[in-house]
C-alpha cells in the first residue's frame, strides 16, 4: 500500500485518513504499513496534551469525558477522545459501549472519538493506543482524552505517557481507602468526585482531601473537584485546573518521554512473540497445565517455558 496519500491526509487533519490509519495500527497483520506511517508522521508529533482518565466502572468516566471535551471545544481548541472497552475473555468480542455515553457531546461539537477494544490476553492494546495518540497528534489535535478500563497492563502503560491524570470517584461507589491501597491516589494529578447531585458527595470530597493531605506532596498541589457529568456543572472549573496543570508541564516531548514510549512498544512486542511462539504447541494455558501436571513449581515452570519459546537459556 502506498502510504503517501494517507500520511498527507493525516497531516491535513482529514478525518477519514486519521480513522483508516488507526485501523491499520490496530491490525497487526499490517505492521509494515504501520511502520511506514509512524515513520512519516514522526516529525509532526510531540505536541498533543495527553489527558488520562481512570476510575472504577460506573463512576461516570465516559459521561464526564463527553462534557469535558465539549467544554474544550467551546474554548476553541481541537480535542479528541480515545476510550478503551473491555473485550470478552471468552469470545474475544467487544461491546464498545463507552461511545454511546458521550455520543451527544460528540455530535454537537464534532469531536473526534475512537473506541479501542482491550483484547484481553491477546494484548496489543498498549501499542495500538500509543500509535493512535501519535496519529491524532500528527493530525493537529491539541489534546486527547483517554478513558481506560481501570486495570491491566495497557492501563498502566497509558497512564505512564499521560501528561495529566484525572482520577474519578463518586459517592456510593465504595471506600476511598480501597483506592489508596490500590495505589490509584498516587498517580492522580487532579481528583474528581462525580455525581455531586447525589447524596454523600460532599463527604467523598472531604475524604479524598484528607487522604491527599496524608500523602507526600510535590510542587503540584492536588485538588479535589466535584462535578455533575449529566448537567455539566463545574466542568469548567475542572478544565481550568487541567489547563493550570498543563501550563506547569513541559510542552514538547523530550527524549525521556520517547524512550518511555519505545519501551512500551518493546514490551508489547515481546509479549506478542511469546504468545505467538507458544501457539503452535497449543496455547500457553495448555503448556502451563502440562508443567503443573508434571509437578513443576511455577517459578521453574515459567523458566522452562520461556526457555523453550525463545530457544536459548535465559
Amino acid at each position: 500500500m502506498n502510504t503517501d496519500a494517507i500520511v498527507k491526509g493525516i497531516r491535513g487533519g482529514d478525518i477519514p485518513s486519521v480513522s483508516r490509519a488507526i485501523s491499520i495500527v490496530e491490525d497487526r497483520s499490517q505492521i509494515s504499513v504501520s511502520s511506514e506511517i509512524m515513520k512519516k508522521i514522526y516529525d509532526r508529533t510531540g505536541n498533543i496534551h495527553i489527558i488520562g482518565v481512570t476510575g472504577p466502572p460506573g463512576v461516570g468516566k465516559s459521561s464526564m469525558i463527553g462534557k469535558l471535551a465539549s467544554e474544550i471545544a467551546l474554548r476553541g481548541r481541537k480535542t479528541s477522545i480515545i476510550a478503551v472497552d473491555a473485550s470478552s475473555p471468552f469470545t474475544g468480542g467487544t461491546l464498545l459501549g463507552n461511545r454511546v455515553r458521550m455520543q451527544e457531546s460528540i455530535n454537537r461539537n464534532s469531536i473526534y472519538m475512537r473506541s479501542l477494544a482491550s483484547r484481553g490476553f491477546k494484548g496489543g492494546l498498549s501499542s495500538a493506543a500509543l500509535s493512535t495518540i501519535r496519529i491524532l497528534d500528527a493530525a493537529g489535535f491539541d489534546s486527547v482524552i483517554v478513558e481506560t478500563v481501570g486495570s491491566g497492563q495497557a492501563d498502566i502503560d497509558i497512564m505512564k505517557i499521560a501528561h495529566t491524570i484525572i482520577v474519578l470517584h463518586a459517592p456510593g461507589l465504595g471506600d476511598i481507602l480501597q483506592s489508596i491501597k490500590a495505589g490509584i491516589m498516587e498517580i492522580g494529578d487532579i481528583f474528581v468526585v462525580n455525581k455531586i447531585d447525589r447524596e454523600g458527595a460532599f463527604l467523598a470530597i472531604k475524604d479524598i482531601e484528607d487522604s491527599l493531605s496524608m500523602l507526600p506532596g510535590g510542587p503540584w498541589k492536588r485538588k479535589v473537584i466535584g462535578v455533575n457529568s449529566l448537567s455539566g456543572e463545574n466542568i469548567d472549573a475542572l478544565l481550568d485546573e487541567i489547563e493550570r496543570h498543563r501550563s506547569l508541564g513541559k510542552e514538547n516531548r523530550g527524549d525521556g518521554e520517547a524512550m518511555q514510549e519505545m519501551s512500551i512498544y518493546i514490551e508489547d512486542e515481546l509479549r506478542r512473540i511469546i504468545l505467538e511462539r507458544s501457539a503452535p504447541k497449543g496455547d500457553l494455558n495448555r503448556e502451563m497445565k502440562r508443567m503443573m501436571a508434571k509437578g513443576i513449581d511455577p517459578f521453574n515452570g515459567a523458566l522452562k517455558l520461556v526457555t523453550s519459546l525463545v530457544g536459548s537459556e535465559i
Binding site: 469470545t91 468480542g93 467487544t94 464498545l96 461511545r99 454511546v100 455520543q103 473506541s115
Partner: peptide, 16 residues
C-alpha cells in the same frame, strides 16, 4: 443482535 455479534467475536458499536 449486539450480544450475538459480540459472542461471534466482533467489535460492536451502538449508535444511540
Amino acid at each position: 443482535l449486539a450480544k450475538a455479534f459480540r459472542d461471534a467475536g466482533m467489535d460492536v458499536l451502538y449508535a444511540g
